[in-house]
C-alpha cells in the first residue's frame, strides 16, 4: 500500500475534533471535485456533495467514539489519522491507544422509533462502503468510500 497522502496526529479529545473533520472534508473534495478551486479559508463547510457529506459524517462519528468511549473523555491519548485518496475513493485510518471496542456488539437501531442515542455507528456503517475495526493496541478503524459514478444523462431521443 502506498504511503498516505495525509497524516495527522492530535490528542484524542473532542476539543480537536473540528480540526480533524476539516482536514477530512478537504481531502474529500480532492476526490469529489478534483477540478474545483479549493477555498480552505472559508469558515463554512461545503458538504453539498453527497460523497463529502457521507465521509465527513461517518468520520466524525468514529472520532466521537474514540474520544468518548476509547479515551473516556479524558483526552489522555492520541489519535493518528492517515488518509489515502485516489481518483474515485478515499480511505481513512484512525489509530488510538484507548480501551478497545466491540463493533459487533453494536445493535442496528430500530428506525421506526425516534432514538436519542446509539446512532453513531449506524450512521458510519450506513454511509460508507466499508467500516473495519481491529482492537489493539493500537485500535484501528479503517473507513472506505468509493465515489459513485454520476448517473448517465438521459439522451434526447433519436
Amino acid at each position: 500500500m502506498s504511503p498516505p497522502a495525509v497524516r495527522l496526529s492530535m490528542p484524542g479529545s473532542l476539543r480537536y475534533r473540528a480540526v480533524a473533520v476539516r482536514v477530512v472534508a478537504e481531502a474529500c473534495r480532492l476526490v469529489s471535485r478534483p477540478d474545483a478551486e479549493g477555498d480552505a479559508s472559508s469558515p463554512a463547510y461545503d458538504l453539498t456533495h453527497p460523497f463529502d457529506a457521507a465521509v465527513v459524517s461517518a468520520f466524525a462519528e468514529i472520532f466521537n467514539n474514540i474520544a468518548i468511549h476509547a479515551y473516556g473523555r479524558r483526552g489522555d491519548g492520541g489519535i493518528d489519522i492517515a488518509i489515502w485518496v485516489t481518483d474515485d475513493s478515499i480511505e481513512v485510518e484512525l489509530r488510538d491507544h484507548g480501551s478497545p471496542f466491540d463493533l459487533s456488539s453494536v445493535p442496528v437501531p430500530a428506525l421506526d422509533e425516534l432514538h436519542e442515542g446509539g446512532m453513531g455507528i449506524h450512521i458510519a456503517r450506513s454511509l460508507l462502503d466499508e467500516v473495519e475495526y481491529e482492537p489493539g493496541p493500537p485500535n484501528l478503524w479503517r473507513l472506505r468510500k468509493r465515489l459513485e459514478a454520476a448517473p448517465a444523462r438521459a439522451s434526447a431521443g433519436g
Binding site: 473533520v21 463554512a44 463547510y45 458538504l47 465527513v56 459524517s57 466524525a60 462519528e61 466521537n64 425516534l114 432514538h115 436519542e116 442515542g117 446509539g118 446512532m119 453513531g120 450512521i123
Partner: peptide
C-alpha cells in the same frame, strides 16, 4: 445548519418528543 452528528440529532429528538 451546516453539519449535524448523532449528538445533535439526539437533542432535536429530545426536543421533538
Amino acid at each position: 445548519l451546516d453539519i449535524i452528528d448523532s449528538s445533535g440529532v439526539a437533542v432535536l429528538v429530545k426536543l421533538y418528543k
